[in-house]
Amino acid sequence: MKLLEMNHVQKTFDDLEVIKDISLSVEKGEVVSVIGPSGSGKSTLLRCAVMLEKMESGDLIYEGRYAARDVNGKSAYADKNELKEIRGIFGLVFQNFNLFPHYSVLKNITDSLIKVDKLSKKEANERAMELLKQLGLEDKADAYPYQLSGGQQQRVSIARALAKNPDILFFDEPTSALDPELTVEVLKVIKELAAKHMTMIIVTHEMQFAREVSDRIIFMEDGVIKGQGTPEEMFNSEDSRIREFIGKLS
């Protein structure tokens, strides 16, 4: 089943065409890594997918539901209620975590469950504690984000996203704000999710990680997908540009 489908997506920032006619689809359970040089449009593509940016043209479809439909070369977005429901299908983990500093770890996770998803406080707490335990953070429930290391903060933000029970999870360079030692603990969590067949799209510069975790790697450059395939295919690509890029970073 296709969880996500993007067709002929195009995005410009004042005259600068950042995403040029990209199409891609992601199957349930698939782990897709997006790699490519800085400025190639990886984050923008992700932000279009999670509707933090509006596409100029193209379709955006989650589980067969149109978040945006291309009408005569313009993306027409669905109405507010439909978009609200579609937003519940996916979650996003940010590069710099974006935890709420004034909330405890537990409240960062439970607050939206209670106020948005209308769970009881008890249910929300149980779900949050369960996740914190999985991620080895149960003793941090009452801490505030500033009291945690970057790696712990990123794991909390993953827990926060997972608590919403998304069908698909996006990551935008989840470890590039972290020291190498802390990177490992976050990548481990993502690998565990992959092993449980969580559908994920991960923008990353960690080639070895992408190779281990992905079913498919997409290489982007200048706002287009220049190549994609299994990790083996990509690491042994015919395309010298892809080989060179991967070689430089691994």
């Binding site: 933090l52 937003r87 709420f100 106020k115 948005v116 998803d117 996203a161």
Partner: peptide, 15 residues
Amino acid sequence: GQYEAAKMLGYNKAQ
């Protein structure tokens, strides 16, 4: 990022 995180979690504008 605080606004974006809130949006991703489904908070409405007033919340």
